[in-house]
């Protein structure tokens, strides 16, 4: 019996080392699989059209700047597209976190009739995908004369159940009611309390959700493609779709890669800077689908 235990333990020690090596190899492979595509993308963005048609090499070339300038002077309004994407995403994410915090505060800090029912309703609508209401949405904004405008891409963010839920959970653990009482005794109005005291305390939760809603909006293709039609208003995903729709093999391939790089690498760089908060925030808010 004793001998058995010792051999088991010895086996286990050697086993751990072996297992660790296997883990590193598999994790290394997975990381490779995640980064490989972006590596080729980067290499190919630095190569000219004629170099690209002569096959792949793993070494970068010298045409990065040329490809980028060609892209900016090309037929696609990419700079305008990026500006549009930035505008829509920034406003969308501001509206989203501000009003979600306000809704969370209303449910958290006040007692009123139908509160429970309202809370349940907000949770129930959490899962309705935007696609299933898209038809009515398009008809409605056509009637409201809001087609080809940024408004229908920004204002609806005020009702974001998932962000609301996340901030509400954070509020429950960080916002003492005594603080609000004290502010009221000092004569602060309710709006002032919300903007001046509650919001600053909610910054960590709001920042995490701001990143996610910004990225979600930045990457969104379905709704903007239905709403926006004029060249000057198109966002980056729509321009990508246009590029795909064109007979792209006739294009300067250097420019095609530059265009894809232009939509992917800014996000990667920002992600690497903020990754600590993103990966951490994700684990904390596991409600997110």
């Amino acid at each position: 019996m004793d001998m058995q235990v010792t051999t088991l333990n010895e086996k286990k020690k050697g086993g751990v080392k072996q297992r660790r090596i296997i883990c590193y190899i598999v994790l290394g492979l997975a990381s490779f699989l995640c980064l490989f595509w972006f590596y080729i993308l980067f290499i190919n963005t630095t190569r000219s059209h004629s170099e690209l048609s002569s096959g792949f090499t793993p070494i970068p070339s010298t045409h990065l700047i040329t490809n980028m300038t060609n892209l900016f002077h090309g037929t696609q309004p990419v700079l305008k597209g990026m500006l549009n994407s930035l505008t829509v995403s920034a406003l969308n994410c501001l509206v989203c976190v501000y009003f979600s915090a306000m809704t969370a505060y209303a449910i958290h800090a006040y007692e009123f009739k139908f509160k429970k029912a309202l809370f349940t309703m907000i949770l129930a609508i959490m899962m309705i995908p935007t696609q299933v209401t898209a038809l009515g949405f398009i008809q409605l904004i056509t009637k409201m004369n809001l087609m080809d405008s940024f408004v229908p891409l920004i204002v609806p963010a005020a009702a974001s159940p998932i962000v609301f839920f996340y901030i509400k959970q954070y509020m429950e653990s960080t916002l003492p009611m005594e603080l609000l009482e004290a502010a009221r005794i000092d004569g602060a109005g309710e709006v002032r309390i919300f903007n001046g005291i509650v919001l600053p305390l909610m910054v960590p939760a709001m920042a995490v959700q701001a990143i996610f809603s910004f990225v979600g909006c930045w990457n969104n293709y379905f709704t903007p493609a239905l709403v926006l039609s004029s060249e000057s208003k198109k966002t980056l995903p729509i321009l990508i779709a246009t590029l795909r729709g064109a007979d792209f093999l006739k294009f300067d391939m250097g420019q095609v890669y530059a265009m894809i790089s232009f939509s992917i690498f800014p996000v990667i760089i920002v992600y690497l800077i903020l990754s600590k908060y993103i990966v951490g925030g994700l684990a904390a808010g596991s409600v997110k689908g």
Binding site: F99, S100, M102, T103, Y105, A106, I107, A109, Y110, E111, F112, K115, L118, I122, I125, I128, V132, T133, A134, L135, G136, F137, Q139, L140, P152, V155, P156, A158, A159, F164, E190, F194
Partner: peptide, 26 residues
Amino acid sequence: NKWGYIFLIPFLAVFVVFQLIPLIST
């Protein structure tokens, strides 16, 4: 208490206009 309702207005208004009405009309 009434502030609870007031702070809920933006969410509810936007939800009704941009989600509920489109859902019903769909």
